[in-house]
Each structure stands twice: as C-alpha cells, then as structure tokens.
Amino acid sequence: MKQFDTVKITMDNHNEGVTKGQIGTILEVYDDNYFEIEICDSNGITLFLGALSRDFLEAVF
C-alpha cells in the first residue's frame, strides 16, 4: 500500500473509533506496517485521522 491509496477498514477498533467497512485514504506511510489514515463522511468532514496497522486495512482497487 502506498500514499493516497484508498483502503477499507477490515475490523472494528473501538479504541480508535473506526468500524469495519469504513473507507479511508492513506495520507502517510510510516513503514511496511503502519499508515496515517483519514476517514471522511459524505460531506468531507473528517471522522478519523490517525495511525493504523496493516492488520486493519485492505486496499480498495
């Protein structure tokens, strides 16, 4: 996965406030396992901005 790829959240992470099925964008690649993700609603309002591990992400093509 690389910067600006679209990703889907694969499982809930209640500590971070993300839920399975949400769609986000990779803003920064920290290493092979951690990425800065932004998830927005349909109006462009940020719902989540933070680092997630690859375990929670699936690339959307």
Rank of each mutant, 00 (worst) to 15 (best):
1 M>Y: 10
1 M>R: 08
1 M>C: 10
2 K>N: 13
2 K>S: 11
2 K>W: 00
7 V>C: 07
8 K>G: 11
9 I>Y: 13
9 I>E: 08
11 M>D: 08
11 M>Y: 10
12 D>S: 04
13 N>W: 07
14 H>C: 01
15 N>S: 14
15 N>T: 04
16 E>M: 13
16 E>F: 14
17 G>Y: 11
17 G>R: 06
19 T>V: 15
21 G>N: 10
21 G>I: 14
22 Q>C: 07
22 Q>D: 01
24 G>A: 07
24 G>D: 03
24 G>K: 05
24 G>L: 09
25 T>G: 03
25 T>M: 10
25 T>S: 05
26 I>M: 10
26 I>L: 13
26 I>T: 06
27 L>R: 08
27 L>T: 01
27 L>I: 02
29 V>H: 02
31 D>R: 05
31 D>M: 04
32 D>V: 04
33 N>E: 04
33 N>K: 12
33 N>G: 04
33 N>A: 07
34 Y>R: 10
34 Y>H: 07
34 Y>Q: 07
35 F>M: 08
36 E>I: 02
39 I>E: 03
39 I>F: 12
39 I>V: 11
39 I>T: 08
40 C>K: 14
41 D>M: 07
42 S>Y: 01
43 N>A: 11
43 N>V: 12
43 N>H: 13
44 G>L: 12
45 I>E: 00
45 I>S: 00
46 T>C: 06
46 T>N: 04
46 T>L: 00
48 F>D: 02
48 F>S: 02
49 L>Q: 15
51 A>W: 09
52 L>A: 03
53 S>A: 02
55 D>R: 11
55 D>E: 09
56 F>D: 01
56 F>S: 01
58 E>D: 08
59 A>S: 09
59 A>F: 09
60 V>N: 03
61 F>I: 15
61 F>R: 14
